[in-house]
Computed example of a mutant assay.
Amino acid sequence: MTKILDVLERYYDAVPRVGGARGEDFGPLTLFVQEGDGWQYYARPALGGTRASAADVKRVLERQRELKVPESFEWVAETSPSLRAAAEAAGLEVHEHPLMVLDPAAGPLTPHPDVRLLGADDPLLTAAVTVPMLAFSAPGTARGEAGPAELATAMAAPAAEAGRARVSGKLAAGTTGLAAAVRDGVVLCAGQYNPVGEVAEIVGVGTLPAARRQGLAVGVTAALVADALERGANTVFLTAGDEDVARIYGRVGFRRVGTALIAEPPAA
């Protein structure tokens, strides 16, 4: 178990840098700051760093406020067990999420007929990056209200075009892969994976709330796993939103190896 967590620690330190972020050193913590437009990253334990205190966390929070970036910390509970107490002492709220790795013995699933990979110039790309936004605004696995009409409205917002441009560039550069479930020309579920060396993280798998409970997330995840393995990954992992979502990923062959923690200011 320790070996795989070490592999993930190196990935967590590398992936923001691959994504164009710079690392700012705060002793036992590293703050990743995006250069220019793009995904805003987090602070996390420095590789090989020492135990962080509440004062260390507060120093990073001050810098995040100065930069006007999200006040967010991410780490693995089993790797940095003392950071939770420091984050809570600094006034942050900590959320737990199952950390899961693909079992090497897991066999491939039968491809879902509605799922395919999308490229940088695919006309469905805007929809594919917008569906997860709607999904995460209504978390959980139960069916919800948002459907194709809400998707069309959301796609007209500036954030949708910005997301399309960002993901298109990453697809063209080979720093992400994207799969979507498409039915009658409508994207119902989509997700990505981000490879660094021989490690790939599945991220942002979300189903349009009105289309949940049809096995679409399993199909998209299976397609992402297959593509990541074909492109040379030997470790594929993800963070599940909760235990119910973790059970879905278990059907694709993922097993829990730890707990991912996210610390943020309490909701107002």
Rank of each mutant, 00 (worst) to 15 (best):
Y193V: 02
P209A: 01
S168F: 05
G253K: 08
N234L: 11
A240V: 07
L224M: 08
P158S: 00
A233I: 08
A157V: 02
S53G: 09
P123E: 04
G177N: 10
D37Y: 15
G197L: 11
E161N: 09
Y11H: 03
R255K: 15
G197H: 08
A149G: 03
G215T: 14
V196A: 11
L83V: 00
V60C: 00
G177V: 07
D25G: 07
G147W: 02
D103Y: 00
P139L: 13
E78I: 14
A263M: 07
E161Y: 12
S53N: 12
R22G: 01
E24R: 06
A160D: 03
V225G: 04
A138S: 10
R116K: 01
T239W: 09
G23K: 08
D114H: 10
L178F: 14
A138V: 12
R164W: 12
A267Y: 06
A179P: 00
V131Y: 03
L31M: 13
Q214D: 14
D122W: 12
G177A: 10
G140R: 15
T207Q: 15
A180N: 05
A55V: 05
A165Y: 11
E9I: 04
L261F: 10
Q214I: 07
G147E: 09
E9W: 01
V199A: 04
T239R: 04
D37S: 05
R10I: 10
E78R: 11
V76Y: 06
S82C: 07
V225W: 00
A179W: 15
R65C: 04
E35Y: 00
P81E: 14
A263F: 09
A52I: 03
T207H: 12
F136T: 10
W75E: 01
T175S: 09
A240Y: 05
T235M: 02
V257Y: 02
R251M: 07
E96M: 05
D121M: 15
V115C: 05
G107C: 08
R256W: 13
E96D: 10
Q64D: 07
A46P: 00
L238K: 02
V18R: 01
L83P: 02
D227F: 11
V101M: 03
I202W: 07
A233G: 06
D122E: 11
L261A: 02
V69P: 01
P132S: 12
H97W: 15
G27Q: 06
L99V: 06
A263W: 08
D121Q: 13
Y11A: 04
L99P: 00
D37Q: 07
E145T: 11
L238N: 04
A190D: 14
E264Y: 15
L178G: 12
V252E: 08
T259K: 02
T110A: 15
T176H: 08
G144S: 13
T235W: 14
S72K: 10
I202A: 06
A217E: 06
A90K: 04
G19L: 01
E71L: 13
R213A: 07
A228G: 04
G197C: 10
F254H: 06
V18S: 01
L178H: 12
L83Q: 05
A146Y: 05
G197R: 04
